[in-house]
Amino acid sequence: MIKKIRTPLLIIMLIFIFLFSLSGIPGILEEEPDSTIGDLVIERGYSDTSSKNLVAAILLDYRLFDSVFEAAILLISAAGVLYMTRLPLKDKTMKGGKGNERQ
């Protein structure tokens, strides 16, 4: 019984969570606020960071902390790939499903 309704229940729950998260976005369920962070960046971005590209102004000055550790994530991922290629295979290979008979 519970197995039959589990999948639709999960989907309904996910849709509900999605719609609930929509309520945080201005202009959909709530009314838009007077000013956002984006307006502030557009207004004072050039005088604060001297970068005409406002996306670069956010990435390289306001949120440089995020950018540096985003680069750290890439470093960790590349190190993981390098580690995994050097990992030796274990002896008990089960290629072609031959290991299925073994207990």
């Binding site: 960046v41 996306v55 956010i58 995020d66």
Partner: peptide, 13 residues
């Protein structure tokens, strides 16, 4: 608004 674009480049990487 430049803020979501700057956040999404993080998400892409």
């Amino acid at each position: 608004d430049p803020l979501p674009q700057a956040l999404m480049i993080t998400a892409i990487v």
